[in-house]
Amino acid sequence: MSTRTRRPALADSVRLSGGGVEILDRRVYPFERRWVHCATSEDVAVAIEQMVTQSSGPLFATTAGMTLAAREARNEPPGRAAERLRASGRRLVATRPTNNHIRDAVQAILAATVDGPLPEASGDELVEAVTAAGAEHDAAYWARSAALGRHAAALLDDGAKVLTHCWADAYLIATVEAAQEAGKRLEFVCTETRPYLQGARLTAATLVEMGYRPTVITDGMVAAAMADGLADVALTAADRVTMDGHVVNKVGTLGVALAARAFDLPFYALVQAPDPLAPVIGDVVIEHRDGDEVLHVLGTRSAAEGTTGYYPAFDATPPGLVTRIVTERGAFRPEHVSQHFVEESS
């Protein structure tokens, strides 16, 4: 197990500069270290839609994209500048409707600027304020992820074999860092995660970077891997958690939870907080992407001509299949996850 403290490459995958935003292309990582240049906020929105970045990446892309939007509105009068910023925010929120990271980032930036103390800001004042609000949101996200990681690591026994699904990004990095600080030895099994293979490329590559030698399995091997004793616990991120404890995450997560229940293994889901705007699962929009995406693997068609694809990008795991939902404030039974906010206000 590595004791290195430098964060892995994917923890720094969005870079804001004077000339725009550079986003590390997760569609080809780790085989290529290719950066996609975004000169405008619209370029950022398109990059998010096209899966250049995923998981936590769209949050950081959004805060940077809002800075570009402020720059684009620099020469507008105050009222018009504010509306342009709000319009750019709406465009970014519409890119990926299931995960609430983008929505929350846009709301935080607007609340700190034109919808809050600076309704008449324009020009350099607006750019400076939006840039600062974005940086503050990014830093807070990492701090909350670190807190979440400490709570998650506390649930993992020394020597535990951890099965992951898809790419949990900052949550996984923080959990691994906390486990290392506690001196815990862990092993990892990663589902490859169709159709973009984020588990095989992003999760596994990051774990290797952090000093591990993970085992990669196909999505259909989860139950067999558990039956063969390759996993002691299932650990996934959540793109959103409802106030009644439903876990919405990358499609296939429900299958992992079902297999874990069949083999009496704990299933833990990681999210900074449940979404107060989603009391029940019907309040969450499940994104459906072009079915053609599942007919290809890394740009090469894998299904016969004449076939069609079906691609709900996320699924919902009901509370009864979830052992604990881990937030920045602790580990909650799913039926009690709303207590996260009770703890917050106490």
Rank of each mutant, 00 (worst) to 15 (best):
V176L: 05
L172C: 02
L172H: 02
A174W: 00
A174N: 05
K184Y: 04
P195W: 09
T175P: 00
P195F: 05
E187V: 05
R185P: 01
V176M: 09
T191G: 10
G183Q: 00
D169E: 13
Q180D: 11
I173T: 12
T193Q: 01
L186T: 06
K184C: 05
T175N: 07
D169L: 04
E177A: 12
A168S: 15
D169K: 01
T193R: 09
D169N: 09
V189M: 00
L172W: 03
W167A: 08
T193M: 08
D169P: 02
A168D: 13
L172E: 06
L186E: 10
A178W: 01
T191I: 06
K184R: 12
A170Q: 13
V189W: 03
Y171E: 09
L172P: 00
I173D: 06
W167H: 10
K184E: 00
I173P: 02
Y196A: 13
T191K: 05
V176R: 06
L197R: 07
D169V: 07
R194E: 06
E187M: 08
A174H: 07
A182S: 15
R185E: 13
Y196D: 12
V189K: 00
A170I: 14
A178Q: 08
A179F: 07
V189P: 03
E181D: 14
P195Q: 06
Y196T: 13
L172V: 01
F188A: 09
E181N: 07
W167D: 10
I173M: 08
Y171P: 07
A168W: 01
K184M: 01
T175L: 11
A174F: 04
T193S: 15
Y171H: 14
Q180R: 15
E187F: 08
K184S: 03
A182H: 04
A178C: 10
R185K: 12
W167Y: 15
V189H: 01
L197Y: 11
A182I: 13
D169C: 12
Y171W: 12
A170R: 15
D169A: 15
R194M: 07
Q180G: 14
G183P: 08
A174G: 10
P195C: 03
T193N: 01
A178S: 12
Q180I: 14
Y196G: 05
P195D: 00
E187L: 11
T191M: 08
G183I: 07
T191Y: 03
